[in-house]
Simulated assay, not measured.
Amino acid sequence: MLRCARSLARAVVPFAAGALAAAALAAASPARAAGPAHIAASDRSAWPQPLNAPAAFDRASRAEILAFARQLALSETLDDATLRARLGLKQIDRPALERIRGRFWQRLAAGYRNALRTCSPPDAFCAPASDAAALRGLALRFEAAPEPAYAAWYADAARFHRVYLDEQLRLAALFPRVSSEIDTYSAIESDGSELGDRRFLLSFDDGPTPSGGNTDRLLRTLRELRLQGTFFVLGESLQRRSDDAARLYAGMCVASHGWQHQSHARWPQWQDSVSRSSALVAQRVGAGYVPLFRPPYGQRLADSGAFFRAQGLRVALWNIDSQDWNPKVSADAVGQRLLSLMLLWRSGTILFHDVHDKARQALPWLLQRTRGAGLEWVDCKRYPAAAG
């Protein structure tokens, strides 16, 4: 059982050098940027009810959607200079930013409509909103908790969603100059947002670890929990475990993350990295292989779709980042952040890293907190065919 992250409830987690910083590399490079100053942390103990039924999940989901939508609407009033200062950027790509905002509004509106289906008077957070414009108006009026029982949650959610929005807007403001998971380039790419309501896919990057390490421990936990995951492995790491790869990943899905953990946006050998690693996975894992590729840091070239199509691969991104790679984010905080984001987006691909031990600790807590909520963990063999 995870402990409540109350120490994180009133403050956000400082960013530390990790995946985003490594993706950024040198600030002098035009295709790089330093990571965000803060990472959003949530305190789920502030929510006053269990999430042990579909209606209970929907009530909490409507609340998270309204809290995030309010921050999104307020951000639209900021001029470029204010927004650059807030995000810590010297320049922003305004068209990309507006495109992502538009996608967010459409997805939030669809999620809110789905969450309204279980509303019955006098349930909370049940004001109707038929489209994005109506949801924006509703969010702007969401200035306080509707009842005293939700006051602690409202204060925590306002902090969480302000910082989480900045994480997303920062990626959007840099795209496509710095590619990332924030947007797709073509139909050959998927990020999990296409999954149907209440459906989630587990994914794990950067393994495998040496025998007996975090990958082995995580796989034992997944089997105990009767969960599946898609493991995006590095070719050079898999090569060291080729003899036991099929046994190690039995019952799971395995795909390529490249030969080495380098940004494919600026690596001349990226095509070789893709083909070599995919061929090795298919050879060593056998039936567990799935024809997906996840670019390190989510970085890839805008015109790479034709290559992946010719290789018979789909680019598999994500839309829910656990931040488990970040040394300043505890396993407790990983679980609580994920639960808030699952309530917010209502479906998607969750990003973990099996080279770290936090997923193994967070997942049992997450399943316990959502038992009875009507969620579906997607069969990895059916992704992305399971969309819709």
Results as ranks from 00 to 15, higher is better:
342 M>L: 14
224 E>C: 08
188 I>G: 07
133 A>P: 01
235 G>K: 05
380 C>T: 13
379 D>H: 06
343 L>I: 03
22 A>P: 06
86 R>M: 11
173 A>E: 09
21 A>L: 13
234 L>D: 02
296 P>S: 05
140 L>I: 10
194 E>P: 01
103 R>M: 06
6 R>P: 01
73 A>L: 03
266 R>C: 07
290 V>R: 14
196 G>W: 10
191 D>G: 02
353 H>N: 13
30 P>H: 09
52 N>W: 10
167 E>Y: 14
360 R>H: 13
332 D>V: 08
156 D>L: 04
68 F>K: 03
251 G>W: 14
17 A>I: 07
252 M>Q: 15
209 T>Q: 03
220 R>M: 13
144 A>D: 03
292 L>D: 04
67 A>Y: 01
208 P>S: 10
275 S>L: 12
14 P>S: 08
34 A>K: 08
382 R>D: 14
374 G>L: 08
34 A>S: 12
155 A>I: 04
103 R>G: 05
191 D>E: 05
333 A>T: 11
236 E>V: 09
112 Y>G: 14
51 L>W: 12
28 A>I: 12
52 N>H: 15
239 Q>I: 01
248 L>M: 07
136 R>T: 09
251 G>I: 13
253 C>G: 13
45 S>C: 15
211 S>E: 15
80 D>Y: 11
153 W>P: 00
33 A>F: 00
13 V>I: 15
56 A>K: 09
294 R>D: 07
180 S>P: 00
291 P>M: 15
253 C>Q: 06
131 D>G: 13
118 T>Y: 05
196 G>E: 10
295 P>E: 10
240 R>L: 13
317 L>T: 02
64 E>W: 02
12 V>G: 14
287 A>H: 10
388 G>E: 11
329 V>L: 15
320 I>S: 07
251 G>N: 12
305 G>S: 11
213 G>Y: 05
172 A>E: 03
76 E>D: 11
381 K>R: 15
299 Q>G: 01
110 A>N: 11
74 L>E: 12
95 P>E: 14
29 S>P: 02
279 A>F: 07
147 E>L: 05
128 P>L: 09
26 A>Y: 11
217 R>P: 02
96 A>R: 02
145 A>F: 06
28 A>Y: 03
323 Q>A: 15
116 L>M: 14
4 C>M: 06
315 V>E: 04
327 P>D: 09
228 Q>A: 08
206 D>C: 06
356 H>D: 07
61 S>R: 05
241 R>Y: 04
337 R>F: 14
81 A>T: 15
62 R>V: 04
4 C>G: 09
